[in-house]
Design a protein around this nucleic acid. Structure first.
Lengths: 233, 233
DNA sequence: TTTAATAGTTGTCAATTTTACAATTATTTT
DNA sequence: AAAATAATTGTAAAATTGACAACTATTAAA
């Protein structure tokens, strides 16, 4: 059959907003753009969609090429289509956001793109519309994590309640009552208490927890209301 | 500056899932596809993105060309990128969903595409991946309307509480206690009671309400929790 | 060995929100 | 004037949330 004639073709790229949490602050991973235009400027990691590749495939490929990681949380965020967004040639970009365990990343560091982690409140100037992409990703993370158990994706397999709480406190830039927080989190039945403790950060030590994979999968779509009114924070 | 060489260009389309509510059921608007492939099959209304047009622009253009309506609720839903989704040529589709007042539409009926309204539980076979698009749009509508005052977009400027309730009951395929429902809705401070009544459906008549535009805009992003746990319904 | 310091865990009560359920009021038709 | 219809209003129990203090386990220093 014949092609669709008289229609304009364009380029399609995928850009990834990669979140990580190191216990200090919530960060995103940026690279030095390796080609013109704006070579050397800070940029999100991205790439063009290949002929036989879906956007999901491309996002997985891009994430792996930068971090070496596979099987991590990746979600389509939004498609940016402004005709002027790339000065060279019309390119639409399908933005994805990824949540990774930053410690896993460090083990597999790739120097090819000179990547660096930036705290969310210290993002440098970025090329094109990448600042808007980051803003939207942060907004969606805050939105979704208030309802669903999303932030676990940023922590190691084994984590403590204080770790989890400080992650939530960084994301929402506030503080929670630790008594109420632990009660709320534990009431979800999403956590399995381990027998061992984390002794690095305190004398008494905090018990490790792991995710209950079955309940996690079953209840992910439920409105857990972990943070009641995030838009007020 | 030179173009990005060695990259594959592709077509980008926009498809619209258009929701309407006639008091009987929740419906979407479908057309007979006017060109090959699959000419004459049922399809979502869509079109190719034009050279100087964003996806938002395209969705507005497409919606207007079918319904004659402007200024209605339109939201980007998801971008579908499977390399095989269009058998003729690689085309990605940015899906939008629209919520319109179905009675406004009827006044401006366009016969160009032989459009028809289909209740959500009686959707015919659709071309390409349009069934999946409809499924995702319905899921997102249910998700978002449980938290935010979205469904008002489907009603006329003036509407009654019984109308509003039956809309929610259709969307969530359940029934609510009218006493609790009206209390919950009114407690949001989103509605302004009118002095006149709708006498068409009952002898006593039901008061009309209008949206409080200011509060609507201010509180749209709040978690109103209109429907507590939609995933259970 | 004892004491102080640190930080995680557990408990209680009041306030708020939600849910379930029944009676009353307003209007039209006969 | 009475009957029929459907909207509006009320209340109490249950569940959830939020604020707040005391206790316990561990390590380091005296």
């Amino acid at each position: 059959m014949t092609k669709y004639s008289k229609q304009t073709r364009l380029l399609a790229a995928v850009d990834c907003i990669i979140f990580g949490f190191d216990g200090e602050s919530l960060k995103i991973l940026l690279i030095h753009r390796g080609f013109e235009p704006e070579r050397g400027k800070w940029s999100l990691m991205g790439g063009f969609m290949q002929p036989d590749e879906s956007a999901d495939d491309a996002s997985v490929r891009i994430l792996k090429s930068l971090t070496g990681l596979e099987g991590v949380y990746l979600e389509q965020l939004y498609t940016f289509c402004d005709p002027q967004r790339d000065p060279i040639e019309r390119t639409i970009s399908i933005a994805y956001f990824a949540l990774i365990d930053i410690h896993q990343y460090e083990k597999q560091l790739s120097d090819q793109y000179h990547p660096e982690w930036f705290p969310l409140n210290k993002i440098p100037d970025l090329i094109f519309d990448h600042v808007e992409m980051v803003r939207l990703a942060k907004e969606k993370l805050r939105y979704k994590a208030a309802l669903h158990p999303l932030l676990f994706e940023l922590l190691p397999k084994k984590f403590t309640l204080p770790q989890l709480q400080s992650l939530y406190e960084y994301v929402y830039d506030t503080s929670f009552d630790k008594r109420n927080f632990s009660r709320k989190v534990l009431s979800t039945r999403l956590l399995i208490k381990q027998v061992d403790k984390d002794k690095y950060t305190s004398k008494k030590g905090a018990f490790y927890y792991k995710l209950n994979a079955k309940n996690y999968k079953a209840d992910f779509q439920a409105f857990l209301n972990i943070i009641p009114n995030p838009h007020l924070l």
